[in-house]
Structures are given as structure tokens and as C-alpha cells.
Computed example of a mutant assay.
Amino acid sequence: MDTDDLLRRGLDWVARIAPYDLAAVFTLDEDSRLVVRAARGHLASQVRGHRIDLANFPTLREALETRRARAFTEDDHRHGDGDPFDGVLDLSPGHACMVVPLHAAGRSLGLLTLDRAHCESYPQAVVDQVETYGQILGLALDNSDRRVALEHLRAEELERARESDEVAAGYGVLERSVSPAVRAVAARARRRPHRNAE
């Protein structure tokens, strides 16, 4: 299962705990921006690729730093940072909204957000359950990303081995040359990589 499929399944599963109209996983990029990596629900098509600059959302930064989930209130939407999807979705300030940090191995990976058009906050008991689920999802995301990185490293190593075999085959042709000078150059060239590796 690839990472995107893992996230899609994870978002589908969280609906059993907390109903939503939109569930999104934001991952952190190298510029400390949050980027939607996966989204589910009937509003999902409107937010794909959406980016958030953390400098504009202190409450999201706080969630990442404290690693605690929180439900946003109408007051948060009206007088706080606003909603992560302001300007993209037209949700009322009183809509149900939850932000859940994703982390693993001592590093922040991003956020899970849940939104519902219904004007009622998520109960704290539900927030606590989704926070625990977010910890599991963060570990799964980290594990998946590491597996993908290892697969890339393995592919690169196999390519280097293939190139090395091709070079070695070329040395073999030169070492069978009738010219003693060519055979000597080929022998020196074959030994050189070993000295560099040392």
C-alpha cells in the first residue's frame, strides 16, 4: 500500500469516530507551509493542493508544538486565526472544526483537519479519541515515508551496481587487448576505485 492509499483509508476510517464533510491531511514542506496531501468527503475536490503559511496561523503552530488536538469554536473562527480553509470553502464561523497534530519519531509531520458544515463543536471526548487516532496515523505515515525512502535508496544502489558491472565488463575487453600498454591502463583503472573507496 502506498502512502496516498494509506492516507485515504485512514481518513475513511476516522469517519467512524468523527463524522465530517471534509477530512484533510496536511504535511509540512521545507518552507514550513502546510500542504494538503490527502482529502476525503464531499468537499475534498475543492481543497486539493491547498497551502497554508504557518506564520498566519498561530493556533495551528501551537497544535504542532504541543501535539494536542483541539476543536475550533465560533469565536476562534470569527476573532482568532480564522479557518484553515478560509478563501477556499464557504463554511460558517460556527461550523464543527477540529485540528489534530500528526507526529512520529520526535518530529512533526503535519495536521489532520476535520470540518463539518453542521454548526456544533466536536465534543471533547471525540477530540480526545481522534487525537489518539492521529498518533497512530502519524506513526503509519512516518513508517510509509521511510519505506518509500528505503525503496528509492535500494533502486539507486541497484543502478550503481549495474553501472559498475558495465564498467567492469568494459575493463575486461581492454584487459584482453593485444597491446600491453592498453592492458596496463585497464588494470590501473580497475584498481583506482578500490583505492578511492579506502
Rank of each mutant, 00 (worst) to 15 (best):
A38P: 07
R116M: 13
D31T: 09
V88T: 15
A69P: 10
R67V: 01
V36D: 12
V88C: 13
G82V: 01
T73I: 03
H95I: 04
T66F: 00
R33P: 05
A96T: 07
R107S: 15
Q46G: 10
E65I: 04
H118I: 11
L111D: 03
H42N: 07
R68G: 06
A71C: 08
H50Q: 10
R116E: 10
M98P: 06
D75K: 15
R68A: 07
T59I: 03
D75T: 13
R78A: 14
L112S: 07
D86H: 14
R48V: 11
L102S: 01
F72V: 01
C119N: 09
L34I: 10
A71P: 08
F72D: 02
A44I: 11
G41I: 02
S121W: 10
G106S: 09
G82C: 11
V100D: 00
H79T: 01
H77K: 09
G41Y: 06
N56A: 09
S121H: 13
R78S: 11
L112C: 08
G49V: 13
H103C: 06
G80K: 01
G94E: 12
D53Q: 11
S121C: 11
P84N: 03
T73F: 07
L111P: 08
R61M: 03
A105D: 14
L109W: 00
R48K: 14
P101H: 02
A38I: 12
S108Y: 01
D76V: 00
D90Y: 05
A38H: 04
P101S: 08
H42K: 12
S108T: 04
R33V: 01
G106T: 02
S121Q: 14
I52M: 05
V36P: 12
R116G: 15
H50W: 12
E74N: 15
T113R: 00
D53A: 08
R78K: 07
L64S: 00
R78N: 08
A105I: 10
A71L: 08
R70P: 06
A63E: 00
S45W: 10
N56P: 04
Y122G: 04
D86R: 14
